[in-house]
Design a protein around this nucleic acid. Sequence first.
RNA 1: GCUCCCAUCGUCUAGCGGUUAGGACGGCACCCUUUCAAGGUGCAGACAGGGGUUCGAUUCCCCUUGGGAGCACCA
Length: 498
Amino acid sequence: MTSQRPVRVRYAPSPTGDPHVGNIRTAIWAWLHARHTGGQFLIRIEDTDQSRKVEGSVERILASLEWLGLDWDEGPDIGGPYGPYVQSERLDLYRAAADRLLAGRQAYRCFCTPEELDAMRARQREQKRPPGYEGRCRNIPPEEAADRGAREPHVVRFAVPEGGVTVAEDLLRGPIEVANDTLDDFVILKSDGFPTYHLAHAVDDPAMQITHVTRGDEWLPSLPRHALLFDALGEPRPIYVHTPIILAPGGGKLSKRHGAKSVLEYAEDGFLPDAVLNFLCITGWGYGDETVFSRERLIEVFEIENLSLNPATFDMDKLTWLNGVYLREMPVETLAEMIAQRLERELPADVYRPLDRGLVEEATPLIQERIQTLADVTPLVDFFWQSEVPTPPADAFLQKKFRGQPVEAARLLTASARTVEATDPFEAAVLEERMRALAAELDVKVGDLFTLVRVAVTGRRVTPPLFESMEIVGQGVCVDRIDAAAAMLAEVPQPEPS
RNA sequence: GCUCCCAUCGUCUAGCGGUUAGGACGGCACCCUUUCAAGGUGCAGACAGGGGUUCGAUUCCCCUUGGGAGCACCA
């Protein structure tokens, strides 16, 4: 138990689309870090690239967090003491910071055109030299630069100190050293007046009193730049936590193809928020021998310094299994509600709505331990709602013991129909007892007999428990379907016993 | 090409100088069983390689190899 002061952490997505699981995992960890220490979690929208902005993203991002049950203390929708929480509304702050650096000659105006920069990079590639800005505009006298700056388009670049080494600390990795010569003069203010990520980060995180910057480790190479920037601005550096990325199952980058889906898509696919939260959290983090963690348990034991450093592979099988665990542990009433919603959406249009809730509640316990996601529900129980279940083709019956034995199958089904018909009261337990007795009487294995009946009544070889299902379907319908199947099989021509 | 990061079963991980290297998913076998599940039991399966440091390295250091990331007026 490490004693930790309350932290202030943030999730700072750019509104360029739905957050995918790798991205949201970092948010989960930051959120847990905040909740574990009794600190604050806030959201800041990083929309400094107008061209990449996607309409509706902010809403989708917030909806994603809400679905996962991650609540925030300050953010674009609810405001807070350090707002605004949208970077495009904070341009004055970035401008002021850039001006300060300019005045202190820690930054300079650069008038190189994109074409010139392209040419420079081409030259560097040709000469096998590392790419990077070479400082053409660094030595323009400040007065002249300011003068030109009033008329000409330009960017502002940070003047990286020449020589020396910059050391920056990552909470998980310790000090990271980089020679300043390997750093080029990066842009901090774009020609359109918007800041780059670097400047926005160095301005906003201190302004918002952020104690720990949790972000993807693709930022690690930029860490020294940020350290330099913070120093130049006279801001104390935050504690950095760079989190590893998630890999696709085959290895390599996680793409839409391999589960880099957005969290909202997982909701669609029938996954539960708690299961996704649990899964994402434990891919890249572990706590002793535990695997299944409730939300409360995660808040209790999650320590951000225990994050794993190696990139994790997204294990879809494990997510699916974990979702099944949550489904099974859920109170039946809660599950029934979710199943009802699924069925309302997925059952064929010709099924009468609203659905009979009593039926849903009867069916739910039958399938609770048979589903791994809510998407498994409908195919498993739809026959309960189908008034017309067509008799399946003969092949569905004539498997295993009954291969080539349509007459025998028909005979057993007919006998079953009579037994089902005579069962009173028509309850699963009674039915089972009678059918077992029938199997003994006819000298067939119960499994063989029950399979015939199962296929006749449900149209499937795999179903929820047979007698409970039959009770739900109803006596008359069961008898009709079994008789229909027997009649159909009686028509099948016997194979020539050649 | 340059810079940085990472390295325990197939996968996610525990381990933080001395362990029969533990757990989970997945796989296999058996049990239970009306199908399918669920559940139970068991089995197979890892410290990338080489140097050091140390009485002793999975653990600390270096190199190699292998992965990954970055090198934009994107974040």
